[in-house]
């Protein structure tokens, strides 16, 4: 049988490439340049355990940030105090969090008015 490899993503993100963060911020749904696409593919290939996701608090209006347990039947853990008014706002924030998690560096470009 063929199963997924949760640690299968190998691409190394260059944490200094703020040009890529800026590119993403300015066009969240792409199309993206090849370098940014690799960054996003890497981010979306994180293991299920601890993966960021959203909980719909009020449909179409409010989302809470959570991290998946990676275990069947175990609820996601809500990240306290983080709410979004739109998917766009959420996508940008999750991008920044993953950048930090994967590179150890902060995204220093300014936020856009997502949402």
């Amino acid at each position: 049988m063929l199963l997924y490899d949760p640690e299968g993503a190998t691409y190394q993100i260059d944490g200094s490439r703020m040009d890529l963060a800026r590119e993403y911020r300015d066009r969240l749904r792409g199309p993206f340049g090849h370098e940014l696409q690799k960054v996003l593919d890497r981010m979306r290939n994180t293991p299920m355990k601890g993966r960021y996701a959203l909980i719909v608090v009020v449909p179409f209006r409010e989302y809470a940030l959570c991290r998946l347990s990676g275990v069947r039947g175990v609820a996601p853990e809500v990240v306290p105090g983080v709410r979004y008014r739109s998917m766009a706002e959420a996508e940008w924030d999750i991008f920044k969090r993953r950048w930090r998690d994967l590179t150890g560096q902060e995204v220093t470009v300014e936020d856009a008015a997502h949402g």
Partner: peptide, 24 residues
């Protein structure tokens, strides 16, 4: 919740509804 590739397939963070959280 279970399929590693779902976020890759939809290319956006996954939004979990009350129904989906309940089913999990």
């Amino acid at each position: 919740f279970d399929s590693h590739n779902t976020e890759n397939l939809y290319e956006a963070p996954m939004a979990l509804s009350e129904d989906e959280l309940y089913l999990n």
